[in-house]
């Protein structure tokens, strides 16, 4: 464990908690893409299948459990408890356009052609693009609540910090996982546009609006 990865995990945890609290306390999921949340729940499900078979550390197991519980809780709140506030008219990104190509790629490009490894690879590729429905929804509505932009900033920062972690581990342990690195770079690049808007607008106290 290194500081970059720890900060990345905490940033990821912060993002997940921010979103869950936003929905729970405002009792509304306006402006949040339910499809992205479903994809994230799928990412954690396919990545943490070894939760009970491959114990790494208390921290690792605890975080995996928290991610799984929070992501499913968020999906539950959005599609059941606060369903009336779910903005399905703007959350129209076709998930199958992401899941099918990612599923195919996971079969073709992986480290080891075993079910667990292919599912892990699928989760890495899927996580890279899982935010697209959310970014698409914001581009359609043309704006995002400030709390949602904080959520996105924390979520985008997590994988950017992981990239620093991978560089650090390469120089200190000679370790690198090309699949995770390439997917992590794609994932972070998708946030660049948003990072620019966040830093130039939200940090100046303005509302996050996309140029229509």
């Amino acid at each position: 464990m290194n500081i970059f990865r720890l900060l990345g995990d905490l940033s990821h945890l912060l993002a997940i908690i921010i979103l869950l609290l936003k929905i729970w306390r405002t009792r509304s999921c306006a402006g949040v893409s339910g499809k992205s949340q479903i994809l994230f729940a799928l990412v954690f499900t396919t990545r943490y299948l070894d939760l009970f078979t491959n114990f790494i550390s208390m921290y690792n197991s605890a975080m995996k459990l928290i991610y799984l519980v929070c992501s499913y809780a968020t999906v539950f709140l959005m599609y059941f408890k606060f369903k009336a506030t779910y903005d399905s008219n703007h959350d129209t990104f076709r998930m199958e356009f992401l899941v099918v190509p990612v599923g195919g790629l996971a079969f073709l490009v992986n480290h080891d052609f075993t079910p667990l490894e292919i599912l892990w690879t699928f989760s890495i590729y899927l996580e890279a693009v899982a935010i697209l429905p959310q970014l698409f929804m914001i581009s359609k509505t043309g704006e995002a609540e400030t709390i949602t932009s904080h959520y996105l900033f924390a979520l985008g920062s997590y994988r950017a910090l992981y990239i620093v972690n991978w560089v650090f581990r390469f120089y200190t342990e000679g370790f690198f996982d090309l699949i995770a690195i390439v997917a992590g770079c794609v994932q972070t690049i998708l946030y660049c546009d948003f990072f620019y808007l966040y830093i130039t607008k939200v940090l100046k106290g303005k509302q996050l609006t996309l140029p229509a």
Binding site: R5, D9, H12, D50, N54, I56, S57, N60, M63, K64, Y67, H111, D112, W120, Y162, N165, G174, F175, F176, D177, L178, I179, A180
Partner: peptide, 10 residues
């Protein structure tokens, strides 16, 4: 040297 991706990351 590419080691198998360690799954110690979240």
């Amino acid at each position: 040297n590419e080691k198998l991706p360690s799954k110690d990351e979240l």
